[in-house]
């Protein structure tokens, strides 16, 4: 497994940084690829590997401007992988950023918190 997985942002996809050695994990920007499944597949397969040897504490920052429903599902899958990390005794947490007034993004963060056994902190920016 590569120590670092990263993608730069495009008009339709977010910037993604998953860096094991720097212990930095973030997803930032817009996410509306035509096929969210295809776009997130390498991210999720990297995480599947990472899950087997995670850092003691994994903190993921998610700051999305907007997304399509396909991306919501894939982001949820990423959070599921983090939830599984917590089941192995290691720590994992998420900071879910939303712009002030963006009720949709806030509700998505809260909803994920309800669906998962994973600390998700929603933060207004």
């Amino acid at each position: 497994m590569e120590d670092r997985f990263s993608l730069i942002a495009t008009a339709e996809t977010p910037e993604i940084v998953f860096d094991k050695s720097k212990n930095e994990f973030s997803i930032k920007g817009k996410s509306m690829p035509e096929s969210a499944f295809d776009f997130y597949a390498p991210v999720i397969s990297w995480l599947e590997e990472y899950k087997t040897k995670p850092n003691d504490k994994t903190a993921l920052d998610i700051s999305l401007e907007y997304f399509n429903s396909g991306s919501v599902k894939q982001v949820f899958k990423i959070l599921c992988a983090l939830e599984e990390i917590t089941e192995t005794g290691k720590e994992a947490e998420v900071k879910w950023f939303y712009k002030k007034g963006d009720e949709l993004m806030l509700s998505k963060g809260l909803e994920f918190g309800k669906f998962l056994d994973l600390p998700i902190e929603v933060k207004e920016i």
Binding site: Y66, S69, G70, K99, L104
Partner: peptide, 20 residues
């Protein structure tokens, strides 16, 4: 208003990409 704007964009993206 940002709340309405984001919601409208979400639905708009969804419906346009449905056609795609």
């Amino acid at each position: 208003q940002i709340g309405l704007a984001k919601k409208v964009l979400y639905i708009l993206i969804e419906m346009l990409q449905n056609m795609t």
